[in-house]
Design a binder for these strands. Structure first.
Lengths: 156, 156
DNA sequence: ATGTATGCAAACCATTTGCAATGAC
DNA sequence: GTCATTGCAAATGGTTTGCATACAT
């Protein structure tokens, strides 16, 4: 989805986060963040690792997991576990979006929903302070629906 | 959350599901479903297993996983993977609800939200047919917020 | 200089799988 | 009687951990 927060803003926020936590600003941490920012959409640990390698910046799996966790804590990255799929990550953009997950082919589509966003912005829960939220919608995409229809027609 | 679908309705639906799939109606499958129906709220594979054992009905882990998967496919059970917590299940009731997850203590609260439900009922997505959806709201519960405040006060 | 962060390989653990025995149909 | 389902134990695979080395502060 589009990127309303600038690259620099992410880096600055991570920098501040590390300051607050009194953690070190290693090249690995910023290299990983920058690589993540270059992704247009969802990614997995595996694709991130591969992408880093292609970029000739080697990091260990352990460091990748460590750093991703930091970024999730800093709320710069979101972690998603969709039913039946491997864990996916995405940078936390300025524009929240819902996820449509096709239970047949596993494709995940992002949908911006202004009405829903403004509803959630106004929504207060008793005895609970919201940080962020995820709406996962499971169903069937039109491509798979078409295929199923065809298969059914053949069987009958 | 409350149970607007009767015990018998669940069993009947599972029965029909097994018919359609031409699968066998083993005592294990129904014993597991019945045990699940007795839960008031979320449960894990582990707590389910334990509960079965207490009930003196032994099933293997493999069968538990198999059956749970069937029940999820039949949409009689929902599977939830909340950030930082172990996988949780719940019976799929007639009343959808959102989940408030405290990122501090991990407690999950269920919230019924009539406005949101009617919004989602009316909501159509282009090129996508909705089966079900999950809204996960992450934040801090009031208990944890209070503790944090106290800790902060002590440190300064 | 100090102690945090990294890399590597081993450990972990929830879930899956293979296979022989059971029992639903 | 057949073959799907079960139980058990072994295998799997994504993630975490332990420890020695490197390096941010």
């Amino acid at each position: 989805m589009s990127e309303l927060i600038s690259r620099e803003a992410y880096v600055k926020r991570f920098d501040r986060f590390l300051d607050e936590k009194k953690m070190r600003k290693t090249p690995e941490r910023f290299a990983i963040l920058k690589r993540i920012l270059s992704f247009q959409s969802h990614f997995t640990i595996e694709s991130l690792m591969q992408s880093m390698e292609e970029d000739s910046f080697h990091v260990s799996r352990a460091t990748l997991y460590n750093t991703i966790q930091l970024l999730v804590e800093a709320q710069l990255v979101r972690r998603h576990v969709f039913e039946g799929l491997q864990v996916q990550y995405e940078k936390a953009g300025a524009t929240p979006h819902s996820h449509l997950i096709c239970t047949s082919c596993g494709k995940v589509k992002e949908v911006r929903d202004a009405n829903f966003i403004s509803y959630m912005n106004a929504r207060k829960f008793t005895a609970f302070t919201t940080d962020f939220y995820s709406l996962y919608v499971y169903g069937t995409c039109s491509t798979c629906a078409r295929k199923m229809k065809k298969r059914k027609a053949l069987n009958s």
